[in-house]
Design a protein around this nucleic acid. Sequence first.
DNA 1: CCGGTGATGGACT
DNA 2: GTCCATCACCGGA
Length: 211
Amino acid sequence: MSRRLLERGFFARHALDVAPDLLGCVVRHDGPDGPVAVRLTEVEAYAGTADPGSHARMGPTARNAPMFGPPGHLYVYFTYGMHWCANLVCSPDGEASAVLLRAGEVVEGVELAHHRRPAARTSRDLARGPARLASALGLGREHDADDVCAGGPVVVLPGPEGSAGRVRTGPRVGVAGAGGDAGAFPWRYRLDGESTVSAYRPAKPRRRPSA
DNA sequence: CCGGTGATGGACT
DNA sequence: GTCCATCACCGGA
């Protein structure tokens, strides 16, 4: 009864076009301990080397290399000294863009997800936030650059229900400049009425500007 | 519910 | 040395 996967052409578009279509779709990782699947309720687009919030803004490096590769692959990165976050690479090969998986609802493997995230008190908190989502799915360094269109352990499936009419947009979360030029375009997409959507917080400067 | 803050390590200037 | 596409936990309302 395996549902058809999203094909590479789906991802070979601008991240701003892919992002809203990804809402309601399901990311599934069939790992060594069993499967966990998450229905996406919140994503963010990172588009091109000119995007000041993107890891690709300084050009290709060892870390962001998957972003410059073919679409339909994962870009998994490590941040804040302890968290992994997962993106889906978009755009044609050579053009750096990606969609960050920010939040979702665990629709399969709830027990395993709780085992991976003991701090989550409710199932709602299992994948509420990008690092939580990656952790619940069991995604880490070993999945960086994995192909999600090849029937491997990580796949993306069409959503069970249409999300038309429920897509909302807003500024990105935790990105410096999101309220300025980078916030001119709505790059954060979420499904209205979903309790798993993460709370919006503007990026907080670490060092105060001189008084 | 909310806001404030420490933890912690790799990438990059 | 500085900057993080963050989270968990704490205290207050």
